[in-house]
């Protein structure tokens, strides 16, 4: 089935059917990535610009690889070293790039809603959100869902725990929207200062302030990064104290004594939200998440490119 949307702004705008279509298409692309020649000619006639107004390693490389595996032409733009520092506005920058005949925009921006703003002004260009402020990171949620599905068979009825900085995490919000739409149960765990007050009512997720009890409940634990760059006030006393109360450690998992799939969207603060022996342990699928990211992004770009005409 065709996607119901022209842009991928967030999971919020997608229907469960859209999500299934993307995940199924990603399965086909994962097979493509196992071939001797890992490239298909589907988007030969498409030019994509990667606009990164915020730092990124995984997402940028993953999008770029996905685009190249689809045979699209790509341009990379990073805010530092561009005319953004001379005061050019976002819309001016994008319009200038589009006048050079670019078909799709993949954008990361520190302002929540920046891709929505672009989509409003550029209805004929497909916009893909690669993370906007503290709002959404849809492709990350899709690749997380794909990885859970791959590891455990399905999302329906799965108990997924999101641990850590829920307040500042776009990964958390996208994951919550997606998991709820696909019939999984979601709980969040973390210090009260990092969990929005009305999240239970607003998004229909459970809240647990005790990490051990939360781990006893879940099948999958997605450990989020402490986003020091987005915090402008002190929300916990020290990283060491955070690790003692909310760090996912080997010792804690041994006490819980249950098979839990461990995930992390990266980059990892080792020894803060997760310990090295857990991140590298046998139940961790952190690197599979990265691998699946390319296939999932190929699926998104392929489906949106087809949607455009």
């Amino acid at each position: 089935m065709q996607l119901s949307t022209k842009h991928l702004l967030g999971i919020k705008e997608l229907s469960p059917e859209d999500i299934s279509t993307i995940l199924t298409t990603a399965t086909q692309f994962k097979e493509v990535l196992q071939r001797p020649i890992k490239k298909v000619p589907s988007l030969r006639d498409v030019t994509i610009v990667n606009l990164f107004y915020e730092n990124s390693t995984r997402t940028r490389i993953s999008f770029e690889l996905a685009e190249k595996r689809l045979s699209a032409d790509t341009i990379n733009f990073t805010a530092s070293g561009s005319s953004v520092s001379k005061g050019e506005t976002l819309l001016d920058t994008v319009n200038n790039i589009l006048s050079m005949k670019v078909d799709m925009v993949v954008m990361r921006h520190s302002a929540s809603g920046a891709p929505h703003f672009l989509a409003q002004h550029l209805p004929n260009t497909a916009i893909v959100n690669a993370g906007d402020g503290i709002n959404e990171h849809p492709t990350q949620a899709l690749l997380d869902a794909f990885s859970i599905q791959e590891k455990t068979g399905s999302l329906q009825g799965k108990k997924v725990l999101l641990v850590g900085d829920i307040m500042h995490s776009r990964v958390a919000l996208s994951n919550i929207y997606l998991l709820k739409k696909m019939g999984a149960e979601v709980k969040v765990a973390g210090p009260p200062t990092l969990i929005p007050k009305y999240i239970e009512k607003a998004l229909g997720v459970g809240v647990e302030y005790n990490l051990k009890r939360a781990l006893q409940w879940c099948d999958v634990a997605n450990v989020l990064r402490i986003q020091l760059e987005r915090q402008n006030q002190v929300l916990f006393s020290s990283l060491r104290e955070y690790n003692l109360a909310y760090g996912v450690t080997k010792k804690l998992l041994d006490e819980v004594n249950k098979e839990i799939v461990i995930m992390h969207p990266g980059p990892i603060n080792r020894g803060v939200e997760i310990d090295s022996d857990v991140a590298n342990g046998k139940d961790s699928i952190i690197l599979q998440q990265v691998e699946n990211g390319v296939a999932v992004r190929m699926a998104v770009l392929y489906l949106l490119a087809g949607r455009n005409n």
């Binding site: 089935m1 065709q2 199924t24 298409t25 399965t27 086909q28 097979e31 493509v32 298909v40 000619p41 589907s42 988007l43 006639d45 498409v46 689809l70 392929y302 490119a305 087809g306 949607r307 455009n308 005409n309």
Partner: peptide, 21 residues
């Protein structure tokens, strides 16, 4: 073999991809 990604009308109409094994 699924040939969806190799079609010459990818962008003209939607085609559902199937498995390749």
């Amino acid at each position: 073999l699924d040939i969806t990604f190799y079609r010459d009308d990818v962008r003209e109409e939607f085609h559902k991809a199937s498995n390749t094994e």
